Simulated assay, not measured.
Amino acid sequence: MQIWPAIDLRHGKPVRLRQGDYDQQTTFGDDPVEFARQWQQAGAECLHLVDLDAARGDDPTANREAVRRIVEATGLPCQMGGGVRDEETIEALIDVGVARLVVGSRACRDPQWFTSMCDAHPGKLAAGIDARDGLVATQGWLETSDVRAIDLAKRLREATSNIAAIVYTDIARDGMMQGPNFEGLAEMAAATDIPLVASGGVTTYEDVEKLVAMNMPAAIIGRSLYDGVMDLRQVLKIASTPSL
């Protein structure tokens, strides 16, 4: 199972939010490159970046320099989400060196546009499906739609074969250190053959073991690494163990 250590960016600094609440922010130092190098030294082979400013509709370029520095400093494939809502942003971030982009809100609101972008940039775009009670949340988790997460996944697969992955996050679990929503992940995995990336609430080594046992292709891990609850080296060791 592939492990994507997360670096959430706000005003160019690495932070974490509780349940996507911008009023519940913890800042982890001033330089996100330090965290990127730390994860790389621990064995990370890829990184997951989130632009929290762009996600809520603020300046979409506020964190772009930080992203460029992370890509150049590590040379690792970086996946990035947050505020990716138009082709100009997609092309700008690909030019910066981001390997894969996660499109959330607009993929929900305008699946036809998203699948056309997947076809224009094969293997470069993943759908970020963030759910609250099984329904898709958009606009930096500030709004909840009436679209079921698994229905959106099915619709996207029917429309294109060029989608890279689905990054599935249960908002109620994100940043809460309570473990992922395994039931929701299993339902999503059963609904589509698009590669699934588990995100939100992966907190313990047992969580990682269970995801491996579920044959989950990849997982994003954030706060538990920052807080020292898990050691990335041990996580990577578990993730590299073949499932039975």
Rank of each mutant, 00 (worst) to 15 (best):
M1R: 04
M1F: 07
Q2T: 12
Q2G: 00
Q2I: 15
I3K: 02
P5Q: 07
A6C: 13
D8T: 11
G12R: 00
K13R: 15
R18T: 14
R18E: 14
D23Q: 14
Q24A: 14
T26F: 09
T27C: 12
G29D: 03
G29L: 01
D31S: 07
R37L: 15
Q40T: 10
Q40E: 03
Q41V: 10
A42M: 13
A44V: 02
E45W: 02
C46D: 03
C46E: 13
L47M: 09
H48V: 10
H48L: 07
L49R: 01
L49G: 05
V50Y: 06
D51I: 06
D53E: 06
A55H: 08
R56Y: 14
G57D: 08
G57W: 11
P60R: 00
T61G: 02
A62N: 04
N63D: 08
N63R: 01
R64C: 05
R64K: 02
R64A: 09
V67N: 06
R69Q: 14
G75P: 04
L76M: 02
C78P: 01
M80N: 05
D86W: 03
D86G: 01
E88D: 11
T89G: 02
T89H: 03
I90P: 03
E91W: 00
G97W: 00
V98T: 05
L101R: 01
L101K: 03
V102Y: 02
A107P: 04
C108Y: 01
R109T: 07
P111Q: 12
W113F: 10
W113H: 03
F114L: 14
M117T: 04
D119M: 08
P122C: 12
G123Y: 10
G123S: 04
A126F: 01
A126Y: 06
D133T: 13
D133P: 00
Q139L: 13
G140I: 04
W141R: 06
W141F: 09
L142E: 14
E143V: 13
T144Q: 15
T144L: 09
V147K: 09
R148K: 15
R148P: 11
A149E: 01
I150P: 06
L152W: 11
A153L: 10
R155I: 05
R155H: 13
L156T: 09
E158V: 05
T160W: 00
I163D: 04
A164Y: 00
A165V: 09
I166N: 06
Y168M: 08
D170R: 01
I171E: 13
A172R: 13
D174V: 01
M176A: 11
P180T: 06
E183K: 11
G184N: 10
A186E: 13
E187I: 04
E187M: 12
P195E: 12
P195C: 15
V197Q: 10
S199K: 05
S199W: 00
G200H: 06
T204K: 07
E206M: 07
V208I: 06
E209Q: 14
K210T: 14
V212W: 02
P217T: 05
A219L: 08
A219R: 02
G222N: 09
R223P: 03
R223W: 07
S224V: 07
L225D: 14
D227Q: 12
Q234G: 10
K237S: 12
I238L: 15
T241V: 15
T241E: 15
S243T: 06
